[in-house]
Design a protein around this nucleic acid. Structure first.
Lengths: 209, 209
DNA sequence: TCATTAGTGTACTGCTTGGTACAATACAAA
DNA sequence: TTTGTATTGTACCAAGCAGTACACTAATGA
């Protein structure tokens, strides 16, 4: 069997340069990047068209609900990534390894501080109120999953909450600072610092005095 | 001497309800609030007019440079507040008292997490690039002032830097989280937690083993 | 009182916005 | 090759956008 025997979708996935027609799945990340860079109001259909190469015809074919639906699907897409790569491991795996994995995934996802958090950016202004529920759920689950992992690792419940809020909030703040000062190293430094703090709490719990 | 003997500006300041004419100084904070709530792109002249009661005539009389000038003056206004109430005390006063004052001023300014940081919000998206320099200076000075205060308090230089970045970033992150989860208590809790950490470092420095 | 300045309201510009309609094309399967 | 569907380009719409022009009124100081 050669590549030519694959079903069309397989062929298209193989040599996607030749494709004349897009699929929704590969257009969502592109649109996500526009929202990330310009915010909800700033992400005009013009900019989205420019970035994706898709005209309004295609855009409204994929997202009949227009801009609001695009934003909603993109948030869901981001949420799904974090559920698979961060939240579920934290909820399921061994605490130390899961938390270690969280730091790695986070550093990777945010391009070491060069890329901002779309959900965090959306949280900040009023015009994105339609997505308030999705935004709340995202952060709540992150904090809860991290808290849970620490608790399973023997950390006191109250301290686990404080540290989880510090970590999730700290990541958001580090993204703001790294971007404001144009200094990705600040982001990395903060991540290491926070990882150390949680590590210390876990170690103290495992060998109580 | 009665209120009637005051110069007109004094009278206007006294019974400002009766004023038919605005002054730039009392319109800047109103516009700031619109930018804070809707972001740069979302803060349309229509919304600004609605909020301030000022028509385009007045708006362009005060800010001939239009929206960009408004944003610039508002950033300067915010920066000035922080210089007076946070940065200068940190740079000048006794470390413990100055840092204590910073937490109080911060909690107050951000309405215990119900109000976001305009500079932080501006930092996040691309359309505000014209203000990149002001934004960088604001955060850099805050971190440097806090670092300096801790160093004066005897904290090791490296630790002072980590803690200062943690605090300033932590405030930004706490604002994102508090707003995302609609939970001002989270903001207060984070502030207390961060204050404790710095307190501990200062205490450890004052009584070295 | 009167001239000057500071502040205001309104009507207008040209452009961009999000959104719609629909005919034309690309594609997959039979 | 034909047929039905998925995708796309284009022209169009009303509303809103930032910004301009200018006549107007309010406040000030002489």
């Amino acid at each position: 069997m050669t590549i030519w025997d694959l079903p069309t979708s397989g062929f298209k996935a193989f040599c996607h340069v030749a494709r004349l027609v897009h699929e929704k799945s590969d257009v969502v990340p592109m649109i996500a990047e526009v929202f990330r860079e310009f915010g909800y109001e700033g992400a005009s259909l013009g900019r989205i068209t420019e970035r994706t190469g898709l005209g309004k015809g295609s855009l409204y074919h994929f997202f009949p609900g227009g801009k609001v639906e695009m934003a909603r699907e993109i948030l869901a897409h981001v949420d799904h990534w974090f559920v698979e790569n961060v939240f579920r491991p934290l909820e399921r795996d061994a605490p130390r390894e899961a938390i270690e994995g969280m730091w790695a995934a986070t550093a990777d996802y945010f391009h070491s501080g060069r890329r901002i958090c779309l959900v965090g950016a959306f949280a900040l202004d009023e015009t994105r109120e339609p997505f308030a529920s999705e935004i709340r759920i995202y952060f709540a689950r992150w904090i809860k999953a991290l808290r849970g992992a620490m608790a399973r690792g023997g950390v006191d419940a109250r301290e686990a909450r404080l540290l989880a809020e510090a970590a999730v909030g700290g990541i958001q703040g580090a993204l703001v600072l790294a971007r404001a000062m144009n200094d990705p190293k600040l982001f990395t430094r903060r991540l290491v610092h926070m990882a150390d703090e949680i590590d210390r709490a876990l170690s103290a719990a495992k060998s109580p005095r």
